[in-house]
Design a protein around this nucleic acid. Structure first.
Lengths: 143, 143
DNA sequence: TTCTCTGCAAACGCTTTGCACGGAT
DNA sequence: ATCCGTGCAAAGCGTTTGCAGAGAA
């Protein structure tokens, strides 16, 4: 996020600027997403916040994430057709899923214009590039 | 598919060569996938075959597709986190989903080595590139 | 008060599992 | 007789919906 520093106050103002009322739950969920730059599932977020917000329900996590998606703050994707994962909208990058350690790595795409030739005339709203395999670290460990 | 012509006999032999018993259901499901090169859901396949195979159950469609996936004949992907879609494994291509007409178009990726710089040292098993937007035809219609 | 957010419980839709029947070898 | 594919019914699981109570303005 370029427009704020990541404090509670910053995030609250950021949400307000988007027309989203900065409730405690919403701020905490977004704060968590900025802090840990993983690609959490709803359950990940729920587990990370339930100690701090004992009354939290998964419904609220779902609702909040859907609001964030509608307002182009986060995007959702799926690595395996299973649960959805959520990612802060930022520069174009792909997701690499390591089948060995189950981690998801971001990788940069240095040619954002890769689609230009392929889909000329079309209007592109969003894209998702995901790759599955074995990451460098795991590969070295095995050999 | 390079190795056969698409007749029932061809498909049966193809399945046998993979160690998969070419039952009527399996052959018909695979035949349908080669004939219509769309990106069907389980339900699409079921509806297309239920007249010809009145006893067909969705469970069998699921089972069969999973066998095909295990044997690297088809792959599954998801356009919207909803139902899974299935695609015959072929050359690398991306999927473009038009939000206007809801069609899915394939597009070629003329740089299969696009990942080389990005993920060097990693071993890539499979990848999926999906793009959402408005296709050329729909865009022209609107303007 | 009024409006919106929250969160429980239930519904929903896709997919998998358990299991028994039936066909093939 | 044995093995395996099929398909019904039920379970499973992630997600959404209905709704009532709580909280903010």
């Amino acid at each position: 996020m370029k427009s704020h520093g990541g404090t509670i106050k910053d995030i609250s103002e950021f949400l307000s600027s988007k027309g989203i009322k900065p409730s405690y739950q919403r701020v905490k969920i977004l704060e968590r997403m900025y802090k840990m730059k993983d690609h959490p599932t709803v359950n990940d977020i729920y587990k990370d916040l339930i100690d701090e917000i004992p009354s939290l329900s998964k419904t609220t996590v779902y609702n909040t994430l859907n609001i964030f998606i509608e307002n182009a703050i986060v995007k959702s994707f799926s690595m395996d057709g299973n649960e959805a994962r959520y990612d802060i909208l930022s520069n174009i990058h792909g997701h690499f899923f390591c089948l060995e350690c189950n981690k998801i790595y971001d990788f940069e795409i240095n040619e954002p214009q890769i689609y230009d030739n392929l889909l000329e005339g079309a209007e592109i709203f969003e894209s998702e590039i995901s790759v599955r395999g074995i990451c460098k670290a795991c590969k070295n460990k095995k050999s």
